[in-house]
Every structure is written in C-alpha cells, then in structure tokens.
Amino acid sequence: MHGRSRVKSAAEVEEAKQKERSKKLALFQQLNARVFAKYQAKEYDDEAFALTRELLSRSPEIYTLWNYRRCIMLKRFLQTDCNVQDECKAELTFLEGCIATNPKCYWLWNHRRWLLEQAPKPDWKNELDLTSQFLNRDSRNFHCWDYRRHVARCASVSLKSEFEFTTAKIEQNFSNYSAWHYRSKLLPMIFADQADSSTILESQLHKEFDMVQSACFTEPEDQSAWFYYRWLLGKGKNVALADTTSSKTTHQLSPGTREVLESELGAFRELLELEPDSKWAILTSLLLMHAIDMRAHREEILTSLDRLRAVDPCRRRYYNDLRTRLLAELDAAAQ
C-alpha cells in the first residue's frame, strides 16, 4: 500500500458549504437592494435591465421584477435604434435557460407568452418544439401543457397532430391528467358527430374506450384514466352518465351503444374478479348498470354501493348521497 485515502471530515465539508452559502446570500441581498431601489425610483435604464436579469436568473419567483422588466423592455422597444425582434429573441433565449432550471414557475411561462405577443415575427413552430422538449423531460408539467395549448392555437397546428401528440404522451405514461384533458378537449373538435355536435363519432368513441380500458386494466388504481373514462361515457349518444346529478336519465339507448356499454360492463366485471377491491372498477360498473338499465340492476347497484362504502370509507358520505339519489330515481321510475 503506497498511499492512503484522503477524506475530508464532515465538519470540513459542512464548513465549506456554509461559507459558499453565506457568500451567495450576501451577493443576492446586495443585488436585491439595488434593484428595488431603482424600481422605486422608476429608473428604466440599461443598468436596471441588466440587474433584473441577474437577479431573476437566480430567483425567478419575484414576479414584481418580471413586471418591472416588462416595463423596461417596453421603454427599450420605443427607442429608435431598437430591433424589437432581436430584443425579443435574446429575451426568449434567456428565458429558455430559466425555464430549464425552474420548469414550474408561473412567471416564466407568463413572461414567455407576453414576449411572443410583442415579437413582430413570433416563431411558433420553435415554441411548439420547445414544449415537446420540456414535456419529454417531464410529461406531467401542466404549465407546459397549458402553454402548448396556447401555442398550438396561435400556430394553428393541426388538431389531429396535437391529438397524436397526446396519444404518444399517454403511451409513455398514462398517469397524466394534462394529456387526458387535452385529449378530451381535442376529441369533440376532431371527431364530432355530424348529426349531434355534442357527441362523438361512435367509431372513434370505441377506439377511445379501448385505449382507456387498457389503462384501467393495466393500473386500476390510477384515477386519471378512470376520470377520462367517465368523461367519455358522457360523450356517447344518449348516455347521460357524466352527470349523475341529473335525475332525467334518458333510457332510449341505441342498440349499438347499448351493446358497447354491455361489453364494457362485462369487461369490468372480469376486472372485478381479479381486483374485487378496486374502487374505480366498482364505481364505473355501477354507473354503467345505471345507464344500461337501472331497474334491472337494482340489487346489484345497491350492493355495489355497500361495497364502495367498505373499500373507500373516506368517501362514504358521497356514496350515501349517491344511494339516496339513485333510490329516489328508482322510485320515480317505478311509478
């Protein structure tokens, strides 16, 4: 053995860290004081521009400074020698770095949106690619989804390609409320039934059922898929399932729809054999029975409600309420 390991003691490491931290803090405080002094004095000069950048790149959460910065920028735009496009472009690049480190900061996305409104020639295509990139890193960042919807609108991207984008994201990880939500927004726009615009083409509806059922079977505990499923049920022709509060449930199901619902119910019964305690499977099959033929399934609906209260005691009052309502409906129907 020719040498031995040199190991810094924990105290030494901690001390070095502490030193680093206090140095950073001092710098930050100094910057902060200067920027706010200028802000109070309403100075919109280059120095303020540089200082806000310095400070915001460290801490993007100070939204006052973003406002200040926008004021400075508007002043700069008015200068005769200012190339607004270049100015915006530089700012966008700056923002990109900020977003990369703080992808969930509201003010950053807000500032970006404002910048693209200011830019004489906004590059929406680039923005769309950027959101794709950020969503690759974190597919569930709703800020980014929100911004993407805005961009897609402004860039007039084809709805179909956005729809496919949500498919891709859901396939990567279907526990994604944002992706399912976007899908639910796009679906009626792309596949609206010609006859009744509030419903969706049956062929597409069946595909959606398949997809979401796949998710439910893969992971019955994941509620994002079940939420989408429930929304889908409400989009079928004559199936007023989404809104169980309405007592005016129509029962003229078309034979095709009835068939689909029956097969869905059959599938969930199979799932319940494997997962008897799956709350979402019980609830959804209950709603299906309600939609298909409430009276024929009366007993089963009531036992399902008992089962729900047992497996999901936290929401027992909700189930009690549902029970009262359904019973009233049943009574009304019986008369």
Binding site: S214, T218, L271, L274
Partner: peptide
C-alpha cells in the same frame, strides 16, 4: 388482451 394486461401487471 385486457385481462392479460391485468394478470401480467399483478
């Protein structure tokens, strides 16, 4: 199929 998905996941 769907059921196989559940069985496999389990």
């Amino acid at each position: 199929g769907m059921l196989d998905k559940r069985v496999l996941m389990k």
